[in-house]
Write a protein that binds this DNA or RNA. Structure first.
Lengths: 335, 335
DNA sequence: GTGAAAGCGCTAACAA
DNA sequence: TTGTTAGCGCTTTCAC
């Protein structure tokens, strides 16, 4: 592998000139720059990122802390990871993957012993234990998710409150009067994950505003529980005509369970979901849904992080507005 | 962050002594070692991995190339990734995540510009285009999957041939005479992914050996196609009494489709799967399955890679024997 | 506009 | 058994 001295020799200049010519950090004559660039190209020179980072250049490694805890839908995380890596590469950065194991310690380690320049946290809780550590590390970072205290932090997320409202409004327009939300697993509420609360809040307040009867039910992400849950919902709320599901593993089985109980979707019961689009379209009955834009969130988070690494100021919190797509699973209330 | 010179000063020794005391690469008096260790502990010293790597120490970063191509079931890859990261951390290594985008180029870049010491490739095709590059890079590596030519490579995978055989043998013992395999998406066969072929091969030869009529059907991983596929199978093979599914997204919908057609599982039709255990147990009818041990494969691959980094010789190919668990979806042929 | 030299934090000869 | 020194490949003073 060619090193900077090789390039320097071939271009007939000093190593420092090569460095400056390539980084543009000080004026270089056109003539010299051309020779340097040609030499670099000929030799296939790629600066060694680790060396450059330690010598004072910007580190080009980002850490992605993806806890992968129970109740977090795996495909969503994976999509996020892929879009993070892809976007990071487009900015010439690499991505180090951290998992739950170490949580706080992992962040410190990444910053101190690996040459990690920026941090990306997913699955952020309202009172996430990683946040104090994050602040103390004093490295550029972006959260995917919004905690209770956002001061000084940069956050990106779907606007879950608006998503909850959008669902209710869609159903209200269709004439529904009694609606239910099947939400995240209980443990997600227990650790006070922000998005679950915000969705619930938007859902509930919008229902109140529109004069709908509403209820919220945590959902165990085990398809086997769907039949019981379906019965329970119908039993507790005999007037129920619409259900919003924010629980990927439960979506298909729940619809099946309703149909098993003799309800046609959407004729007797409207169902909508907050989930990735490709899940919504592949179900037997394509589901009206608010998209969970994992790709978009990941890409945007990386864009922000890279900008912070360059010292550019960025907005504190970015909430991606919900995108509702009407499909075959919702219809006007007939009963 | 404390550096090695800080530790040296505090312990009253030279930096190199600290390095040696901590690495154990040359004999150090107990007295000195104790002082060094105490100083390191007091200061919370963590060697800067990148610096140490470039100075001659072993790089402690592994790259995980996870293409995430169509037809590859995402949760399996994610599980793999998590077990890779977890195991790597246990060996004090970090993991850089590479995706499809760059394929071959990504491998070179990881080795040359990041301080990547070892490479882990997933989703290896029979004639994987990354392999020539991998050989030329001359860095320790482990493949998860087995290509056509394994000379000089280290491979880890489920023994898919034996898995195919195990399925057939289980069904043969139960008295079934006509069996079908619903396999991977067509594109997986087209790019000649090794595991799909090996499973098919094991399945077919075992069927022949046991005198069973058998057929193989690629499966489009779209639940919407399940009903048509179910009809097709029953129509083409009227005597069919058992189906093996190696296609996660299709498993549940296919069973549903069969039942929709009036077949009871397992009374009229036995179904088994090659899939992760937790998928098999959460279906409405717990499915008899050969486990797809993503955790185990990832962990083992990392163990091997770390051993190679230490210069220890390792076996060329490790095939994890299939583990078949009988559940509620298979039974003795009654018809 | 360019070069020489110092140094990032660490390891590994080479010396003693 | 320990210390001194020379780098790893790069960036950045400082000096011309």
């Amino acid at each position: 592998m060619a090193k900077i001295t090789d390039v320097a020799r071939r271009a007939g200049v000093s190593p420092s000139t090569v460095s400056y010519a390539l980084s543009g950090k000080r004026p270089i004559s056109d003539e010299t720059r051309r020779r340097v660039e040609a030499a670099a190209r000929d030799l296939g020179y790629r600066p060694h990122a680790a060396a450059s980072a330690r010598a004072g250049g910007k580190p080009n490694v980002l850490a992605l802390a993806a806890p992968l805890r129970p109740g977090v839908h795996v495909p969503v995380v994976m999509r996020l990871a892929v879009s993070v890596v892809t976007t990071a590469r487009a900015h010439d950065h690499d991505v180090l993957l951290l998992t739950q194991e170490e949580a706080e310690e992992g962040l410190s380690r990444a910053v101190h012993t690996a040459s990690v320049g920026g941090l990306l946290l997913t699955d952020v809780g309202l009172h996430d234990p990683r946040l104090p550590r994050l602040r103390s590390l004093d490295r550029p970072s972006v959260l995917i998710g919004v905690p209770a205290q956002t001061y000084g932090l940069t956050c990106v997320d779907l606007d879950f409150r608006a998503a909850g409202e959008a669902c209710v409004e869609h159903l209200a327009e269709l004439g529904h009067r009694t609606v239910a939300l099947v939400g995240s697993p209980p443990e997600v509420y227990l650790r006070r994950t922000a998005y679950a609360h915000r969705l619930m809040h938007g859902f509930t307040t919008a229902a109140t505003r529109h004069g709908l009867a509403s209820s919220v039910h945590p959902g165990v992400p085990d398809p086997a529980t769907a039949p019981r849950l379906a019965e329970l919902l119908l039993h507790e709320h005999p007037a129920l005509t619409a259900v919003v599901v924010h629980n990927e593993p439960l979506l298909a089985p729940l619809i099946a369970a309703f149909e098993h109980l003799g309800l046609r979707v959407p004729a007797d019961l409207s169902v909508m979901a907050v989930c990735p689009d490709d899940l919504a379209v592949t179900l037997p009955v394509p589901v009206t849904s608010v998209s969970l834009p994992a790709d978009e969130l990941g890409a945007h988070a990386v864009d922000l992080l890279v900008r912070k690494l360059h010292g550019t100021p960025v907005p504190e919190t970015t909430l991606v507005p919900p995108r509702l797509t009407e499909r075959a699973s919702t219809s006007r209330r007939t009963a």
